[in-house]
Amino acid sequence: MKRHAPATARNREPIADVLADVLPSRGLVLEVASGTGEHCAFLAERFPALEWQPSDPDADALESIAAWTEGLANVRPPLALDACGEWPVDAADAVLCINMVHISPWAATLGLLAGAARLLPPGAPLVLYGPYRQRGVPTAPSNEQFELWLKDKSPEYGLRLVEDVTREAAARGLTLDRIVPMPANNLILVYKHDA
């Protein structure tokens, strides 16, 4: 059954515009935490020369991803993938993760960084999208409210500091390439796997 995330319609075009500058022209893009599957379906149509591998740890999400991507020749069947566990993928030319880091335990982010470092060839991108904090940069009131809502769901959730993510990425051989401000007080962080 298709699930729907209202934010997808608002952010998919700006995300795709950044990805057009970041993704390779060909190869496999692994999307970690694909959620409803709407982003994967949209991006697969926007970038038909790329092969897309959606994934999620949630069985209902996998069903929704399959429904959204049905009939798309450049999308592989969704995989059950927990960022903290074993990854059922051996290699990828890019890794994309939209709106997971803030709504999962910190251990999931560490698993994401370690998994991307294992899979990506030198120079390949790990692209993260979502709300983040930056030292010395005021956080939007809407993000402050969102964080309270996240903490109410789980004390392990919350907006992460870009500097913390970047430090842990660097420890795994991933270097921050760029930070792109996005609508609705979100950011895209692009890391490149060191040669």
Rank of each mutant, 00 (worst) to 15 (best):
G27N: 00
A116W: 02
R118A: 03
V95D: 03
E168M: 11
R46H: 11
R167E: 14
F42C: 04
A5R: 10
R172Q: 13
E63T: 15
M182N: 07
V22G: 03
L43C: 03
T139M: 05
K151E: 13
P105D: 02
E70D: 15
A61K: 09
D21V: 11
F47M: 07
W52C: 10
N11L: 00
G173M: 02
R178S: 11
V29A: 10
A41H: 05
Q134E: 15
A91H: 08
L150M: 13
M1A: 15
A169N: 01
L189V: 08
L50A: 00
A44Y: 04
A116Y: 00
A114I: 01
I188E: 03
G158H: 05
M182W: 04
K192R: 15
P77V: 15
L79Y: 13
M182H: 04
V162L: 04
Y191N: 05
P78K: 11
R46T: 11
V75Y: 00
P181D: 15
P138E: 08
N185W: 01
R46D: 03
P88M: 04
H102Y: 06
T36I: 07
P121H: 01
V18F: 12
E163C: 00
L23N: 08
L110A: 05
T109Y: 11
P125N: 03
P138C: 05
D17S: 14
D17P: 08
T139Y: 06
P88D: 04
E86D: 14
G123T: 00
F42M: 08
S64G: 03
I188P: 08
A171F: 13
N186G: 08
N99M: 05
S34P: 00
N11S: 08
L62N: 05
L159C: 01
